[in-house]
Nucleic acid binder design. Structure first.
Lengths: 237, 237
DNA sequence: ACTTTATAAGATGTTAGACAACTAGGCGGG
DNA sequence: CCCGCCTAGTTGTCTAACATCTTATAAAGT
């Protein structure tokens, strides 16, 4: 973890924790002195948080907190752990395992994972909020990535820990395509809701830092339980 | 436009234009020399593009292009002009004006725009791809923002130019909530499609650089015509 | 001949200090 | 009372150097 990342993390924590209640950050030289790094490092961290949207800088004036962006609940750009997300939304979280199998992927999933006809691990889970099914998720992991024996239960919970522990792979980022769909008969069995209602459908591919695909996922969310927000920036095209 | 922003824009243009076909950028000192700025400025620009996802840096090794992210079509994190978006997707674009009125906003829209019972301009448009309705969009602009007389036709097209020309306001970013919905009877009239099919529904608020809300929009997209993608990074929390 | 260990070159990460450009508030002249 | 100048404070940029890491090459050892 680089020094800039540490500063970013610490500043974010302080901002979310309610320091700088005046809505303004100390000057860059002051921050540099306080945190024991150079002003350059502070500046890079501030630039990152500015792109993230939680603060903005005015030349000659100062660095200020964007309270509105800070108060957003679930930001689409940073949603990761289902259980954490459910609990953040104010519910008790639970997982029900549905299926685990070893299959040969179809064309779409195979190409997303850069596979030919190599096998993939398919694991399906339902996540519950206050005992109501709200997320149905199917993960596909290339079998060749698995480097040590594992217990089936390890695939019931967060897949990221499985990838780290059993595949020695760390997820760096996801590429997600977002679509609206209506619940069909198959999905209604998992989510236990009537057919025809709209749900979020995410097609997601996870990568490590070297751009190698690690996992493909199909995810379905009940929209009544989550609100996904995105900060969209005006790029200078 | 700051010097860093200029470099970001130029580098992005070069990358998308296919320079650096080897998949690797020149070293930071070389770039600094070529573009006539200091290495610090180059580094801030590279950091920004790295957060954007189109390149990544390896300590001690170099700066590389992320071809996969580069090839994404429509990124949700960026604000798009509807016409441009339709044409980028390979269709001919057209606009059909639906309605223009001056109303007192309801509670939800009023609070989104920081208004009491002040009036808003309501303009509704349908955007067509190859003569098929694919986007239905309703914009709400606070009437007090309008600073000069305008022709009704100016509200038929891109609202951003209207905001700049008649309100002297520049949109800096949007805050968008994304939901799946099904087409009801009212929406089916505008989008000319059968009821019950799923569509994207975006609730969007536009802001200027000073965090003042400029516009609220309700937007509906036919998902068959657009694919919205998000790059989600693993932040070190 | 092969493996292992040093070495060096080149890249990104960080530091330090200085100056430039801009903002906002205070002060004085009109 | 208003207007413009001035100044202190803040962010933006530049320069030069050192730190840390990666990679390839060469040397040393087996």
């Amino acid at each position: 973890m680089s020094r800039v990342e540490k500063i970013v993390s610490e500043l974010r924590h302080q901002i979310e924790g309610g320091d700088f209640a005046e809505g303004r950050l100390p000057s860059e030289p002051a921050l540099a002195r306080q945190m024991g790094v150079s002003r350059n490092t502070i500046r890079q961290a501030l630039a990152e948080l500015e792109l993230e949207g939680i603060l903005f800088r005015k030349h000659g004036s100062g660095t200020f907190i964007n309270q509105r962006v800070l108060n957003i609940g679930t930001r689409l750009e940073e949603v990761w752990d289902f259980v954490e997300m459910i609990e953040t939304s104010g519910f008790s979280a639970d997982v029900r395992h549905v299926e685990l199998s070893l299959i040969v992927p179809g064309e779409a999933i195979g190409s997303a994972l850069n596979l030919g006809d190599e096998e993939v691990l398919r694991t399906a889970n339902v996540f519950l909020a206050d005992n109501v099914p709200v997320i149905y998720c199917v993960d596909y992991i290339p079998a060749k990535l698995v480097r040590s024996a594992y217990d089936e239960e390890e695939l019931y919970g967060p897949v990221y820990t499985f990838l780290e522990k059993r595949c020695h792979q760390k997820v760096n980022h996801n590429l997600t395509e977002i679509m609206p769909v209506v619940v069909d008969s198959a999905l209604s069995r998992y989510l236990q809701c009537e057919q025809g209602i709209p749900v979020h459908y995410f097609k997601e591919t996870a990568f490590n830092a070297d751009e190698q695909p690690l996992m493909y996922s199909d995810e379905y969310y009940r929209p009544e339980y989550f609100s996904f927000n995105v900060l969209r920036k005006m790029t200078g095209r």
